[in-house]
């Protein structure tokens, strides 16, 4: 069973005939923070993350009537959020010259917004994630932090499970090496 009771309630309330107000509150209470953290880890900037989350939620509410329950609701939310994050990267590449090397640009934003707040080891770890190639960055975030299965990540990204496993392995090894140098 892909859709549980809470998901069922969210889908019903968020549909065109439902109570959007209550539906929004339940959706955010259940998945809001996780969804925000996922987007924030990919786009880094606080305002950018809010903008991307807004676009994600608008897409979710527009398309919720067509959600057939083939996957968990959270996986479906992830699919829309990932699409919006990739759109964000494409838009930044178009308007920002420095975004050609998106990892560096994102890492700079990380330090600019966290000058005194987070611990160095935490910042170094997230900097290393941002410096991963785009595909590895996506897979690592979904697998490591959100603990999605390879099958779920495959349905989100359209990549094969074996390719995702390889990407995750490379990403993990790279981060481990980097952190052991730091430690």
């Amino acid at each position: 069973m892909a859709v549980n009771d809470i998901d069922e309630q969210i889908i019903q309330l968020c549909s065109r005939e439902g109570d959007v107000d209550k539906g929004f509150d339940l959706l955010m209470k259940t998945y809001g923070r996780r969804l925000y953290q996922y987007i924030r880890r990919l786009v880094v900037g606080e305002q950018d993350a809010e903008d991307v989350l807004q676009d994600t939620l608008i897409d979710v509410f527009r398309a919720i009537d067509s959600f057939r329950g083939d996957s968990r609701l959270y996986t479906w939310l992830h699919t829309i959020a990932t699409r919006q994050c990739l759109k964000f990267y494409r838009q930044k590449k178009l308007v920002l010259k420095g975004f050609d090397d998106e990892g560096q640009w994102l890492a700079q934003t990380l330090y600019a917004e966290n000058s005194m707040k987070a611990e160095t080891i935490l910042l170094k770890f997230h900097e290393a994630i941002l410096l991963l190639p785009e595909k590895q960055r996506l897979v690592f975030n979904m697998r490591y932090f959100d603990e999605l299965s390879y099958e779920e990540i495959s349905s989100i990204t359209g990549s094969s499970v074996s390719s995702l496993k390889t990407n995750y392995h490379y990403a993990f090894e790279r981060l481990k090496k980097q952190l052991s140098h730091e430690g």
Partner: peptide
């Protein structure tokens, strides 16, 4: 505060 802004955006779009 962010949730309120996001909700306003969603309601306006709906």
């Amino acid at each position: 505060a962010m949730q309120q802004r996001l909700k306003a955006g969603v309601l306006a779009d709906r």
